[in-house]
């Protein structure tokens, strides 16, 4: 197994599409439906990378990034924002919160895997 990646998105279809792409490449995938669900599931999982949406109910992606960076056990894991949001200001906000990178939807499977390989291996 190449490693475990958590996919956080309030859209079930996006979680399935990202999960499908990652699983086909040999990664283990954990799904969470929003930031709060992700924080809860992170404590029980040895997750090596996080791919998260930005706009979600309960806890959004930026807040999730801040929480993860504040958690000693996941402080250094790569976090990629996968969102329809393309405004530079939002990107800068994500970068400031500690995101590793930003992908604007729709993603191409090869492209997503290239990013994952580069930041996670």
């Amino acid at each position: 197994m190449a490693g475990k990646i958590m996919v956080v998105d309030d859209s079930a279809s996006i979680r399935q599409l990202v999960g499908f792409t990652l699983k086909n490449a040999g990664y283990d995938v954990v799904e969470a439906s929003d930031g709060r669900d992700a924080v809860s599931k992170l404590s029980g999982n040895r997750v090596g990378m996080l791919i998260t949406d930005l706009n979600m109910p309960n806890m959004d992606g930026i807040e999730l990034v801040r929480k993860v960076r504040g958690d000693a056990s996941h402080r250094f894991i790569p976090i990629i924002m996968l969102t329809t949001e393309s405004q530079d200001a939002k990107k800068q906000e994500g970068k400031a919160a500690g995101a590793t990178g930003w992908i604007v939807k729709p993603f191409k499977p090869d492209q997503l895997l290239a990013v994952v390989k580069k930041v996670f291996g």
Partner: peptide, 14 residues
């Protein structure tokens, strides 16, 4: 005219 580079126009690694 927002634009991104790197691994495609829609990808930016910080």
């Amino acid at each position: 005219q927002a634009g991104t580079g790197g691994m495609g126009d829609n990808v930016e690694l910080f």
